[in-house]
Simulated assay, not measured.
Amino acid sequence: MSLVAGRGPLSTDPAGWFTPPLPEVVYVEPHPRRVQGLRDGRAVIDTERVLLVHRPGHPLSYAFPADQVGDLPHEPVSEAPGFVRVPWDAVDTWLEEGRRLVHYPPNPYHRVDCRPTNRRLRVTVADTTLVDTADTVVVFETAVQTRLYVDPVHVRTDLLQRSDTTSYCNYKGYATYWSAVIGGEVVDDVAWSYDDPPPETLPIKGFFSFDTERADVAAELPEPDR
């Protein structure tokens, strides 16, 4: 996602600019990692000859040598003769070097930096303050909005209850969502946290971040330079 989506350099809304401007391009590169596709517990793809295809307006995708996909559905990749794309749902499970993937391949250009900071975060719901602290962690994530996370010791967790909502990020893991229960009012999914993030995002393990559309969030964040 980082090169061609969000505000990546090859997206339709890049954070920066090229001089002179670039035409729309598709970027294809070798990806020297072992990728496996499992169906019914059996590997139907198992190869280290993998390409990554960064195509504007499309999710990042793998391309495999045509002779290694067997009878799986596939379509040719015009920018990489002899290679084909296999739909993500053509197999039950994708693995990259043993790590289970969800939704899309991890992007080598996607970076997540978690930094302790004194940027203030104040969150209110239904005129009740849930957070008001400058002891936060700022998370800079490539092509994604910068966010503040906060240790639960600074959160009115007595006013939060776990919801049934969940989501997955290849860079932060499975998210647990939390609803605010204040008096007789319930505001669904005002916050989320990651209980078991991968090593690169361990600094925010168990920390909360808040949805700016569901709560009144005042976060001291860098101003985007348009």
Rank of each mutant, 00 (worst) to 15 (best):
6 G>E: 03
1 M>V: 02
25 V>Q: 13
160 L>K: 12
24 E>N: 10
103 H>W: 10
169 C>Y: 03
158 D>H: 12
59 P>M: 08
185 E>C: 11
200 E>H: 09
114 C>R: 03
226 R>L: 15
114 C>M: 00
68 Q>R: 11
78 S>W: 11
62 Y>C: 05
11 S>R: 05
122 R>Q: 12
133 T>E: 01
216 D>E: 15
177 Y>A: 07
193 S>M: 05
46 D>G: 12
110 H>I: 03
66 A>V: 15
132 D>M: 01
14 P>D: 06
148 L>G: 00
81 P>W: 02
195 D>A: 15
5 A>D: 12
89 D>F: 09
45 I>G: 01
12 T>P: 02
62 Y>S: 04
64 F>D: 05
225 D>S: 14
155 V>S: 03
223 E>K: 11
36 Q>C: 06
200 E>K: 08
169 C>W: 06
73 P>F: 13
95 L>S: 02
16 G>N: 11
76 P>K: 10
28 V>A: 14
140 F>M: 03
8 G>W: 05
1 M>R: 08
68 Q>C: 02
151 D>T: 08
219 A>P: 15
134 A>M: 05
110 H>Q: 10
113 D>A: 13
146 T>K: 06
78 S>M: 13
222 P>W: 09
56 P>L: 07
36 Q>W: 01
170 N>C: 11
44 V>N: 08
48 E>P: 04
98 G>V: 00
13 D>Y: 14
157 T>G: 11
57 G>S: 03
22 L>Y: 07
165 T>G: 05
175 A>S: 14
180 A>L: 06
46 D>N: 14
198 P>L: 03
9 P>W: 04
190 V>N: 05
135 D>E: 15
186 V>C: 13
58 H>M: 10
189 D>F: 10
185 E>P: 04
44 V>S: 09
79 E>H: 12
180 A>H: 02
155 V>M: 03
217 V>Y: 02
127 D>C: 04
83 F>S: 04
168 Y>K: 11
105 P>M: 00
118 N>W: 06
24 E>Q: 15
182 I>A: 07
55 R>E: 15
51 L>R: 15
112 V>Y: 00
141 E>K: 00
65 P>K: 01
170 N>M: 12
167 S>V: 09
117 T>P: 02
68 Q>L: 13
47 T>R: 01
144 V>C: 04
219 A>Y: 10
70 G>A: 11
200 E>N: 11
148 L>P: 00
89 D>L: 13
176 T>R: 12
17 W>L: 14
147 R>K: 13
222 P>I: 11
18 F>Y: 13
104 Y>M: 10
169 C>K: 07
203 P>Q: 06
202 L>R: 14
68 Q>T: 13
71 D>G: 12
95 L>T: 07
116 P>V: 05
160 L>H: 08
